[in-house]
Design a protein around this nucleic acid. Structure first.
Lengths: 236, 236
DNA sequence: GCATCTACCTACCACTTGGTAGGCAGGCAG
DNA sequence: CTGCCTGCCTACCAAGTGGTAGGTAGATGC
């Protein structure tokens, strides 16, 4: 067995990692402190020495995940260029964050189901400010004709987040539909899954102008907002 | 729906209802047989008389949900007209099914997280045949120019299902972003949420042709040929 | 009358749960 | 050396878990 689990690392860290994995896999209620202690290789009271209660352990796990996320997020928003590239950067980094460790997605989704009120508060605190930035960006894009006129910015963001988190979290189960049977590549299935996910998020936000080679003028969706030909989409 | 809490209704039915609600709300592991029995108003052994074990109760709850769904689904696919209307009918009915009782969405999502293998098997059995029909429809639409060229039909369906189920299941938590603070209307928030959800599903599938005043290559598309209908999903 | 079946009950079981009490080895400061 | 703190341990606890044993009131069938 993996006894060289790097005992150098602080025990608390190893507890957090094991708890994260088990909570994500089986859920909080279905995970006993005993099983976490076993995974770490210590006795249960030793675990409770580091985290005074099971609920404190849960909060610590969640905290670590959110702080990790909050560490990577601001960079994205600041490094944003403009137009679609900003969007691509954000969504691709988000997808990368959750695909790198799908337990993150599972954990968040479970929390959202188990403790909606608490999660709501956490989201309002952690994600709302960032979401406001993005929704302003969407509104500007809409005025400029880059973004579809019928997009509801706030609601769109909710669905985009949900799309990423949930589809990654449930890939093992719901993703069964999209997989090819013969193909051994679990990885290629996931890539295909994620590619389509990004496509859906993009396509439902932006207009299809380049694809049709049509400039954003006479449009039924929105009154031709004066002279906004300036910001032409980047040819690609 | 008659909220017949009286003793007239079969006890088994009342157990199933209570269990559905509690499993969806707190999760399977976090729900004790005692709490289900309390909700129904009977003793625990009486509950175990109707369902021989907790796991059998879970299966019965899941079965009832899926059979209900399988009862409404074939009608949709058969009553399909053509083009976008078929899509609209399917997605709107699906959304209606899950918004009518959000516990349905929560329950399915929880099962997907808790028992991915089992859920995968259930999906392959119950949803795969139907999904094949839809993906053929998407392929035809793509050839006809109605559907965007870059859609991955199988993967799209997965995301569409996921989008509906997950966003409805997590509305109370993740949906916090999209809600207006002053507005008391939980209902109008949900409607706005759902409207955008349908929009995302549509917009990421179809091309924007009408909006631009361009007619798609007129091509006759029809419901699945009657010979292929044999593989339609059947009840459990 | 009498046996049987259904639907429910009380009383109990073995086991697991989160959590506590208290002890013990070792590092380290005075 | 003593005294104290950290980190981990064994031993234990009350409460709750899923589940069983066995009994009983009432309806049904012969």
């Amino acid at each position: 067995m993996p006894s060289d689990r790097s005992e150098k690392r602080e025990v608390s860290e190893r507890i957090l990692d094991a708890a994260t994995r088990l909570f994500a896999e089986r859920g909080f209620e279905a995970t006993s402190l005993q099983s976490v202690a076993d995974a770490v290789g210590i006795r249960k009271p030793s675990l409770l020495y580091h985290f005074p209660s099971k609920d404190e352990l849960r909060k610590a796990v969640l905290d670590k995940l959110l702080s990790h996320w909050n560490q990577v997020l601001p960079k994205l928003l600041m490094a944003a260029t403009s137009g679609r590239e900003q969007f691509d950067a954000i969504i691709k980094e988000t997808v990368a964050f959750f695909t790198a460790d799908r337990d993150r997605a599972r954990l968040l989704l479970r929390e959202a189901l188990d403790r909606p009120k608490e999660m709501r508060a956490l989201i309002v605190g952690h994600v709302q400010p960032w979401a406001d930035v993005v929704s302003n960006y969407i509104r500007r894009g809409r005025e400029a004709g880059r973004v579809r006129a019928d997009v509801d910015p706030e609601a769109y963001i909710v669905h985009a987040i949900n799309l990423v988190v949930s589809s990654i979290a449930t890939f093992d189960s719901i993703g069964a539909l999209g997989t090819s049977k013969d193909r051994s590549g679990d990885d290629s299935d996931l890539r295909r899954h994620v590619d389509e996910l990004v496509r859906v998020a993009r396509a439902s936000l932006f207009r299809q102008l380049e694809a049709l080679g049509i400039a954003p003028r006479e449009e039924r969706d929105e009154a031709p907002s004066s002279t906004d030909d300036a910001n032409a989409p980047t040819g690609s």
